[in-house]
């Protein structure tokens, strides 16, 4: 059986909010190492991959592999009943028809309990090759969101060009062009404001802004975002979850090719 307790319901609320624009139904795969999720959007352009490690929960127990097939809009309805600071416990039997969610307020003596019906989802798992990316950029997540939203006013696509000079996000559309260039800099007092660029060779790729803006719904989950690029392979956009236990929310986006 699965029994996992999260100190803050907010984490699951935000994860589900961040991915529900891309995916309708998906399996939450539970095993002794934690809860994982991998799903592609309908058009096969973007993929979301989440890992919530057992260490993110206290306690966490899952004796065997359990797939929880969940409709995300139904889960969103149930999670609306959880206050952000509630303690959230997920429970399921070994071959479950439902997942049980309990929300507890630490201040008030209130316990809310919901059973969400599960569905059979026949989902193929994709192998994501370990990639040595040519460039990786670590930057404030709110800055990345701002850039994507601003450039979406200009065009539906953005080119991301990374050289040793910095990273340039550029868009060209009917009304004109726009670009934002970030140079590497470290902020000692506020490390979350630093921009770090790790480059082995220059990269230039184009991506759909509609998807990138969708990914940035994860902004409130982490102060930093990491973009990893290599020419002609999908972009990896990664948010670290719940501080230092290697839990993550990753998005992959297929590039636009040929101009």
């Amino acid at each position: 059986m699965l029994e996992s307790r999260l100190e803050q319901a907010d984490l699951l609320k935000k994860v589900v909010e961040a991915i529900s624009g891309l995916v309708n139904d998906c399996n939450f795969d539970c095993n002794d190492s934690g809860i994982a999720l991998q799903a592609m959007d309908n058009s096969h352009v973007a993929l979301v991959s989440m890992m919530l490690k057992a260490e993110a929960f206290s306690p966490y127990r899952c004796d065997r592999n359990i797939a929880l097939g969940i409709n995300l809009s139904s889960l969103t309805k149930v999670l609306r009943a959880a206050q952000s600071s509630d303690i959230l416990t997920l429970k399921a039997e070994d071959a479950p028809d439902v997942v049980n969610l309990v929300f507890e307020s630490s201040e008030k003596d209130r316990i809310s309990e919901y059973d969400l019906k599960l569905m059979d989802i026949d989902q193929e798992h994709l192998g994501i090759p370990e990639t040595e990316y040519a460039a990786s950029i670590s930057m404030p997540s709110n800055e990345f969101q701002r850039i994507c939203k601003d450039l979406m006013n200009i065009s539906e696509s953005v080119s991301i060009e990374c050289t040793k000079e910095g990273v340039k996000f550029a868009a060209a559309g009917d009304i004109g062009t726009g670009s934002v260039t970030l140079k590497q800099h470290s902020n000692v007092d506020k490390p979350e404001q630093s921009v770090e660029i790790d480059l082995s060779e220059p990269v230039a790729l184009s991506f759909s802004l509609k998807y990138l803006v969708n990914f940035t719904k994860a902004t409130s989950l982490a102060s930093k975002v990491k973009l990893s690029l290599s020419n002609e392979v999908p972009l990896l956009v990664e948010y670290e979850l719940s501080g230092g236990n290697s839990s993550y929310l990753r998005f992959y986006l297929a590039p636009k090719i040929g101009d």
Partner: peptide, 14 residues
């Protein structure tokens, strides 16, 4: 104009 590629070409089913 640039064509949107699909992930299937990059990631194969396990």
């Amino acid at each position: 104009t640039a064509q949107q590629s699909r992930l299937d070409g990059f990631f194969k089913p396990k």
